[in-house]
């Protein structure tokens, strides 16, 4: 049986209390929400916090508030996010992304906040300690070299969250609270393109909620590439959101790629669509442009060149769905369920 290391454990009741504990414990403390990312990592000794500060009993983190847009508490489980009718109706890309995370059980456990703060992943790193010892560890933990690119100065571990690309395409912001105060950040700014320091969040900050703007006139979608219909992390996530005029002319468009970099990749390819219609040619051009910036590495499942080759195709799936094409057959083939 894989077992957790020893840790101290706190279960605060309020954000303030949690923030206070985090501040007092210093860098050796970590938050635990659903634990579905942190606990496997601890069992494999990739992460070994001395103290766990549990968010489970913290009040207010499961809030769903309608205002001008929608506010989602970081403590909502992904199943709760999927079940929220507002998400399904108005923020379809998020709904589709959340519904494709991991497996049904893991969605019942894993939270939105945890998904946004998910550790970056790499096949040289998501391994037991003795496995990592056999390669003399790597830069991300206990070692020197990055085995994915031995000359790389930085870790190239992959941002593997499904909901972050979707939320970025939807223009989401997040609130971070610490003992020192609170700040709001565009979600895109929460991420850094570095496999080790992948979050701009300070260790003493708690992500408490996600704020979505009112998106009247927008449509969004999320397409995920993975081997199986369940369990697997994304090998590519394509989140797309467009606002179109009644005649179908694109007024605004955002295309975000997940799992092809150490952070969710907000591409500039969306600009190509603005002012035109979602024609096959425009879609192909966007696919080409966005595909060029995707940098999959040999540290996840399947052949990396293939993963890069199919980026334009997945972007096309997304944009065709937004155009109104019936994509159900493709969706069934790729996702194995309708979304």
């Amino acid at each position: 049986m894989m077992r957790l290391p020893w840790f101290k454990y706190h279960a605060p009741r309020s954000v303030a209390e949690a923030a206070h504990i985090l501040a007092a414990e210093g860098g050796d403390a970590m938050l635990i929400a659903g634990g579905t990312d942190l606990l496997p990592n601890m069992k494999r000794r990739q992460q070994t916090p001395a103290t766990l500060v549990s968010l489970r009993q913290v009040e207010g983190l499961k809030r769903i508030a309608n205002g001008k847009g929608l506010t989602l508490g970081a403590g909502l489980t992904l199943s709760e996010v999927v079940a929220a009718p507002q998400v399904r109706e108005k923020y379809r890309g998020l709904w589709q992304a959340a519904a494709q995370v991991a497996s049904p059980h893991l969605r019942n456990m894993g939270t939105l906040g945890g998904n946004l703060c998910l550790d970056t992943r790499c096949l040289y790193y998501n391994q037991n300690e003795d496995w990592r010892r056999a390669i003399d560890f790597c830069m991300k933990r206990d070692g020197q070299t990055c085995w994915v690119a031995t000359r790389s100065k930085r870790c190239l571990a992959v941002s593997s969250t499904d909901t972050a690309p979707a939320l970025i395409s939807l223009g989401a912001k997040v609130r971070l609270i610490s003992a020192e105060g609170e700040r709001d950040l565009a979600l895109n700014e929460l991420y850094c393109n570095d496999g080790i320091d992948y979050l701009a969040r300070r260790p003493d900050e708690i992500l408490t909620e996600v704020m979505l703007p009112d998106l009247a006139g927008w449509k969004s979608t999320y397409w995920k590439l993975r081997r199986r219909g369940s369990f697997d992390f994304p090998l590519l996530g394509v989140a797309a959101a467009v606002r179109t005029a009644p005649d179908g002319t694109v007024e605004e468009a955002r295309i975000v790629l997940g799992a092809v970099s150490s952070h969710p990749l907000l591409t500039e390819a969306g600009q190509l669509l603005v002012g035109g219609k979602l024609t096959d040619e425009a879609i192909a051009a966007v696919g080409k442009k966005a595909g060029a910036v995707a940098k999959p590495m040999d540290n996840a499942d399947l052949d990396l060149y293939w993963r890069k080759d199919v980026v334009p195709e997945f972007i096309a799936y997304a944009l065709r769905e937004l155009r109104g094409d019936d994509m159900s057959e493709t969706r069934m083939r790729v996702t194995r369920q309708l979304l």
């Binding site: 049986m1 894989m2 077992r3 659903g34 634990g35 579905t36 606990l39 496997p40 069992k43 494999r44 199943s79 991991a102 497996s103 049904p104 059980h105 893991l106 019942n108 456990m109 369990f231």
Partner: peptide, 21 residues
């Protein structure tokens, strides 16, 4: 014991969860 198989599923407050995590 890593959330990858479902053999450990139990119900907690009616929802199926992985007891290993």
């Amino acid at each position: 014991e890593l959330g990858e198989c479902g053999a450990c599923a139990v119900l907690v407050d009616g929802a199926p969860l992985l007891s290993c995590l």
